[in-house]
C-alpha cells in the first residue's frame, strides 16, 4: 500500500515508526538500573548506528547528560556513532585466523572496496571492520558479511565473494 503514497510521506512514517520503537524500549527499560546499554542496543538495531538526535531523546528520557551517553557509546566497539554500510564485513583477526592469513584477506578487501578498516564505501554498500575471534576457528581465515559466514578464504577469493552482494 505504501507504493501509492508519495515517497516523502513514507520516509516520515518510517522515521516515526523507528522513533516509536525506541520510545517503547525506553519505557521498557527506564526503571531498570543500567537501562542505557539495552536502549542503545535497540537504537543500534533499529538505525544501524547511534544517531545524535535519537540519543538526545534517550538523554532527555533517562535524564542522563549527553557526555555520559557519549562515554558509553564510545567505550563499546559494538556501538557506532557513524552510519554503516548496507553490509558490514567483520574480518576475524583472532589468533587462528591471523596465522592463516587474515591480514591478507583484510588488505585485499580494503583494496577491492577502496576503504580503510572501519571505513564505509562511497556507495554505502559495505563497511569494513576487523574484529576479535568470531569463534569459528575451524573455518579460519573467516569473516562474516551481515549474518552470513564465509570461511577458508584466500585473498583471491575475495572479489568473487563480494560479487554475491552486488
Amino acid at each position: 500500500m505504501e507504493q501509492h503514497q508519495p515517497c516523502s510521506n513514507s520516509t516520515i512514517a518510517e522515521a516515526d515508526r523507528k522513533l516509536e520503537q525506541i520510545k517503547l524500549a525506553i519505557d521498557q527499560y527506564k526503571q531498570m538500573k543500567g537501562a542505557l546499554i539495552p536502549i542503545l542496543h535497540e537504537v543500534q538495531d533499529v538505525y544501524g548506528f547511534l544517531p545524535e538526535p535519537v540519543l538526545q531523546v534517550v538523554s532527555a528520557e533517562l535524564d542522563l547528560p549527553m557526555s555520559e551517553i557519549y562515554g558509553v557509546a564510545s567505550f563499546y566497539h559494538f556501538f557506532s556513532l557513524t552510519p554503516k554500510g548496507e553490509h558490514v564485513i567483520h574480518v576475524c583477526m583472532g589468533t587462528a585466523c591471523y596465522i592463516k592469513g587474515a591480514q591478507g584477506i583484510l588488505d585485499r578487501l580494503s583494496t577491492e572496496l577502496k576503504v580503510p578498516v572501519q571505513g564505509t564505501t562511497e556507495d554505502n554498500k559495505f563497511t569494513l571492520e576487523a574484529t576479535r575471534c568470531l569463534g569459528a576457528c575451524g573455518l579460519a581465515p573467516v569473516l562474516t558479511i551481515g549474518e552470513k559466514v564465509h570461511g577458508r578464504l584466500t585473498p583471491n577469493a575475495v572479489p568473487k565473494m563480494l560479487k554475491e552482494y552486488n
Binding site: L64, P65, M66, S67, E68, I69, Y70, G71, S74, F75, Y76
Partner: peptide
C-alpha cells in the same frame, strides 16, 4: 555533566559529548 570519560583503554579521554 558537560564532560565525562570517553573511549577506552589507551584512547580514554575526558571529553565533552
Amino acid at each position: 555533566g558537560a564532560i565525562g570519560f570517553a573511549k577506552r583503554g589507551f584512547d580514554t579521554v575526558i571529553s565533552t559529548a
